[in-house]
Amino acid sequence: MDAPQERKNLILGHSDVPAPEPIGEGPPDIQLAGCRNVTPVLNRVGDKWSMLIVMVLSAGPRRFNELKRVIDGISQRMLTLSLRGLERDGLVSRTVTPTIPPRVDYELTELGRSLREPVRALGEWSIAHIACIRAAQARYDAAHDPE
């Protein structure tokens, strides 16, 4: 089984990265500010666990332990953090039913449901191109092997 993957965030403004070329209309500083505003959203929707959660919740509401069972390799802590982030971003809603013990259900909001199609398209693209990607990785690794 693969080792757990760290969460990686996109950060604009790295010193080795040239400033982006202007895209669309408006002064470049306004466009760059728009890119900076989008970065947190891209971090969320580009996160491995968040996308898996969205895919699972596409089928309907789930309880925490159901999500944990279905999403192979996710820790309880990472599931909690990912669900909180998705809830904060308005993609997932959390409903607590006052029973003993309390029942907590998670489901996609309308905004979260609008993310299903792009996530599905990305998944389908990945499946269709995995052989090409693995071949490219093998070529790269062979060319850059220190031996």
Rank of each mutant, 00 (worst) to 15 (best):
E107P: 04
G123T: 12
L81N: 04
L86T: 00
V70H: 02
C132A: 12
D72L: 13
A19N: 15
L79R: 04
G123Y: 10
P28H: 07
S82E: 05
G60I: 07
P4Y: 02
L32W: 09
G46Y: 04
R7Y: 04
I23R: 06
I74A: 03
D72I: 10
P20D: 07
S58T: 15
V38L: 15
N9Y: 10
K8C: 11
Q137W: 08
P101I: 03
R134F: 00
P61M: 10
R113A: 09
T95N: 11
D2P: 02
A33N: 14
M51C: 11
Y106D: 00
R139D: 08
V96A: 00
S114C: 09
P102A: 11
D141A: 12
P27R: 14
G85L: 03
N65K: 07
V54K: 00
L67D: 02
A19D: 04
D16I: 13
T97Y: 13
V38E: 02
G24S: 03
E66K: 14
A33Q: 13
M78D: 05
Q5I: 15
I130D: 05
N65E: 10
L67H: 02
L115P: 02
L111Q: 15
V56A: 15
D89R: 05
R134E: 10
K68W: 14
C35E: 07
I30W: 06
R69E: 09
K8M: 10
G85T: 04
V70M: 05
M51H: 09
V119H: 02
R134K: 11
V92F: 01
A3F: 09
Q5V: 14
N37C: 11
G24L: 03
H144K: 14
